[in-house]
Nucleic acid binder design. Structure first.
Lengths: 251, 251
DNA sequence: ACAAAAGTGTTGTGGCTACACCCATGC
DNA sequence: GCATGGGTGTAGCCACAACACTTTTGT
């Protein structure tokens, strides 16, 4: 924007006629992540058509004429997961992928989003012909289009968000234990954390979590019942919860 | 993406026919920031046409059929600033703005970028009919479209990037003093910093800056000549250079 | 001599890591 | 009792903010 309408001459950037070429298609792609049994999973759909027939891909779809990319992403998320309460979910714009040729058929500009869910319903597929499945992150390889890259970008982004925001609670059910919250961090970062220190940092961050007064729950069937917490009102984390020493690289 | 081609039925998300509605236009918008005399400036162009005729706006323009958003942004940047060496500049994707109605004429999806320049050439305007100008950040208000918001988002993002990446050197000429680098941080963050501590943190971060062997330069005409540095090879900053207490302290 | 800007040293506090240790529960 | 997971305490180290001080230039 800031340029002028196509077909007008005065923008000086070379004339652009919106009817002279194939129009751009605009889509959304979703990296929907969850935690199952302590490992990170991603929601994938199997493609029924060429190109990439039979390959797995991130869910997504076209923008409708009167919705924003955010709206479209939320709609697709509801359709693909079958969830009803999609309105409260955290949905973060990741970035936009616009390389020509990323879809062999036509010019597609895609706005990618990340979404974090607590352990989610097993069955999926929406009304869609293609089946949908939760796949362990490490097994999600050789996806269709440039979705490998999008997924990798999503994981990197989520990892960063865990340091500076309260995003981790989005992986947890409404009431959760600090042990469960720690598992989120360990699964996403791929690093074990020291429990006592983790606990102190979480409780020291104002608004991160709020205790549930009477709450307690057994986690592994054994051990002391853990106190329950809810997500607090804060969105950002002060001080940040930094991951253990990412190397200082000389090169 | 991940859905199917428009006009095909099997995506189940409602049929979408790419010829049934006005096509989406895809543009890029640029928040080009620089430092002039210790204050942050942004590159704006004056609009010649409705809507928002006479208002200032971020530079930008339409994607050409065979270029990515990054390519388009770089091309626009070269055109608007008149710089020749645009190839080496840091250009970061900010986010995509897609709300229906953000351009009253048609559906425009815009991918916004930030670019950081060392104190730049005064004259602008490219081949464009509209004039271009560097405007102090604080005076850039009531821009066209949703550009106020884009600009605000850009500043927030740049502020965050200064903490975790080596982006600050992009505001400096090829050889710069630590005092100049500090001014970048102070201008973007709007906070004064302690010089000795700043210096130590910068030098402690591996790959952030590299000394120029014989280099020294007077900064304010008076005082001891400062050693010169170049941007180092690192892209990210370890440890990060955190801004002074953003709220939320324990004590 | 003085002002101005660069650069070095030092000290005290606070935070954080890395543990040891206690508590509550199931088997 | 023992294993398992939750939760508390603490000692030492290290980073960093704050500020005093030295150095090198221009006027």
């Amino acid at each position: 924007m800031g340029g002028e309408l196509p077909r007008e001459e005065h923008d000086g950037h070379g004339t652009y006629d919106k009817y002279a070429h194939e129009p751009f298609a605009v889509t959304v792609d979703l990296a929907v992540l969850t935690l199952r049994g302590g490992t990170l999973h991603v929601l994938l759909v199997e493609r029924g058509q060429e190109p990439y027939a039979g390959r797995w891909a991130l869910p997504g779809g076209f923008l409708l004429p009167d919705e924003s990319a955010e709206d479209a992403a939320r709609r697709e998320l509801a359709e693909e997961t079958g969830l009803a309460d999609v309105s409260g979910l955290r949905l973060e714009q990741l970035r936009t992928y616009s390389e020509p040729g990323r879809d062999p058929r036509m010019r597609v500009v895609s706005v990618a989003f990340t979404a974090l869910l607590p352990d989610a319903p097993e069955a999926h597929g929406g009304g869609d012909a293609a089946q949908a499945r939760w796949v362990p992150y490490d097994e999600a390889r050789e996806l269709a289009f440039d979705h490998d890259r999008i997924l990798a970008d999503a994981r990197t982004r989520i990892g960063d968000r865990l340091e500076n925001t309260c995003a981790a609670t989005a992986f947890c059910p409404p009431e959760f234990t600090l042990g469960e919250l720690q598992q989120v961090y360990e699964a996403v970062w791929g690093t074990p954390l020291d429990r006592p220190n983790f606990r102190r940092k979480v409780l020291a961050a104002p608004g991160f979590v709020a205790p549930v007064p009477g709450g307690a729950r057994l986690t592994g069937g054994r051990g002391k019942p853990a106190a329950l917490y809810r997500a607090g009102p804060a969105a950002t984390l002060h001080p940040p919860l930094l991951r253990p020493q990412r190397e200082g690289r000389t090169t």
